[in-house]
Design a protein around this nucleic acid. Structure first.
Lengths: 193, 193
DNA sequence: ACTGTAACGCACAACTCTTGGCATTAGCGC
DNA sequence: GCGCTAATGCCAAGAGTTGTGCGTTACAGT
């Protein structure tokens, strides 16, 4: 049972204890992040242990334990490259082009080993509540389906575009470079109904 | 670096050393499988460790280490052989009907919570080698694509039929009853090319 | 610059997982 | 049955992990 201190590493004005976010602390955080991403890319998330990260980052392992408590929490917190839910979606007026751009964004995002690894971790923890790590993706899919000129539903965006990408990210990540976002979007938009 | 003995628990005629697949060994395998499935369902695949499985299964932990070498391999192996790879695929002569029946088989298989949990565990352990728990599913998809009258590839079967099912099993299991295998197969078979 | 204390490094301790040797049990082919 | 040996159990050593107390460093606010 780790006594987690859990903080995210960025300014948080309303927190009671004044965090130290610059100087050495920032350097430590940066080198830890770098080490984690390298290790995940090199050997997979299974091989990421706190002593290993600490050694590569040139940081004492106890600092890491005190910050996050365990590997899982650390990786989840460090995945700051996760897609910002507040980012703006492509909106050029051309629905098909926008969808394609969005799909390509997903591919390049989950193409990074860190994000893929995080997704696998999310998959392991999924299945019980609506609130999984792909919830925002589904909301975005629904937003596209609601645009004028759409002849598909949000569910269909998931089935035809998102799920093949996610499947490959999880099970066949090395084939991700081969997939063509346009093909998936075409299948979606060219349907009869 | 585990010295893996990796075997699947069913007969393999051309292997040099004659495996023992019945009696006590079968019982041990069965109780290990039961323990793993229970633990994954109860606490998620992260919490599954070999000593834990051994204790619950009433089996010595060294037996597990000798069989699989590590947790990852064990979960992948158990998840892989949950659906018998030797079972016969639908073959009525009507390719579209056969595909639909196959897809429905997948839905009903992964619709069971035990199998869904195992799949999530397999997802967490996947991503590094060609040999994940859905390998056999891909082989089956390729077999369908190779039949006469097919106008699709194995990859397309994965993208259009398998991946939407797997996505829902992992992330949205409660929507699995709504999905219609026929729709997926229609999308696959009605494509222009 | 000065102060309070968050964050860090170090050392050590406890714990869990991993591996291998050796003896015993029991499946499979004859 | 009988023999061969795969497979398991038991135990103990070792490797790697997680966790904690304490002194030191240095950020942040004044």
């Amino acid at each position: 049972m780790p006594r987690v201190v859990r903080y995210s590493g960025h300014m948080d004005a309303e927190s009671i204890p004044r965090r130290r976010t610059g100087g050495r602390s920032a350097l430590v955080l940066a080198s830890i992040r770098k080490a984690v991403e390298e290790l995940i890319a090199e050997r997979g998330s299974d091989a990421v242990t706190i002593p290993l990260v600490a050694e590569r980052a040139g940081v004492n392992h106890s600092s890491i334990y005190r910050r996050w408590g365990d590997v899982r929490t650390m990786i989840n917190d460090l995945a700051t490259y996760r897609l910002d839910p507040e980012r703006s979606l492509p909106d050029s007026g051309d629905l098909r082009a926008d969808l394609t751009a969005w799909a390509q964004e997903l591919i390049s995002h989950y193409g990074k080993p860190v994000n893929a690894s995080l997704l696998r971790g999310g998959a392991a923890a999924a299945g019980e509540s609506e609130s999984d790590c792909l919830r925002d993706r589904r909301a975005e899919a629904a937003a596209f389906a609601a645009r004028p000129g759409s002849n598909f539903t949000g569910d269909q965006v998931i089935d035809r575009v998102v799920s093949p990408i996610i499947y490959r990210v999880i099970f066949l990540p090395w084939t991700l470079t081969e997939v063509d976002a346009r093909t998936y979007v075409d299948v979606l938009c060219n349907q009869a109904s």
